[in-house]
Amino acid sequence: MISSSSNISSRSKGDYLLSGTVRLLALMAGGLLLLVVSFLIHESWPALQHIGFWRFFSDPDWYPTEDSYQLTPMIWGTIWATAGSVLLASPLGILSALFCHFYAPPLLSRWYRRMVELLAGIPSVVFGFWGLVVLVPLIGRWHPPGPSLLAGILILTLMIIPTIMLVAHASIAHVPVAYIHSASALGLSRWSMIWHIILPTTKVGLLTGILLGLARALGETMAVLMVCGNVVRTPSHLFDPIRTLTANIALEMAYALGDHRAALFVSGLLLMGLVVLFVSMAEGLRHRNTYVATK
């Protein structure tokens, strides 16, 4: 690693000024996370004090105006929507990455990748809007009412495919080309090579992509808010409308006061904790050696 310590250059007044400024800015940026967390805790403190942690699970219902704060339906909504989309998007994302590397002709492969990169840049509100105008009516015609867990899963799938695909693509690109040549020289078929060589050597990278996709699906607000119907009820099947934790915040922040507002901050804190967990798992994986031997 390039260790560019400051002792390379000679020191001057300007140097001290700059290094001081830079240090200050870095400390501010580094302290930002602390600031975010402490504000979230500070704002949710009243709720944790007045309501307590367990009532978020034991209260009969979510009626904040009547002092009833059950978060369970929203938690289930979030879990089902996230799980469904990850389940759908992981195979699609990984298969498309394989498509790009081993199946598509070069020109098509380049265009396909460009397209997925564009897909990654489309704002979530546009996905939500398209889902609301196109997908929800389609589902509604098939199985009313339309705004549903299924709509949420489909839109989230579309949104996290690029994340999973691009990370998978990058880690497949890191497989030594010698592996591919030796596998072919042994007469392994294309699929055998993928199954026995490529997937085992890249599994850490693939998992990282899936975790990042999971984190994105979990934190997504606008798209699910627009297509899921937002009814506070634990879903019993795919066509039930759901409300996620994120949508709940977005819907009620505008008028929430007092303990209600604090309760929303609690759900924000919960969400942040989960996302941080998944992101750090992904980061931890990323820093592990990719080519450690497997069984």
Partner: peptide, 28 residues
């Protein structure tokens, strides 16, 4: 390719056990 074996400049053992390295082509 089954009838033509090839060895490369740098040893390219696959990242799994010795046994699996030899079994993979046989099973295939």
């Amino acid at each position: 390719r089954r009838a033509v074996g090839m060895i490369f400049q740098k040893p390219t053992v696959f990242p799994f056990s010795i046994r699996k390295n030899l079994e993979l082509p046989l099973r295939e």
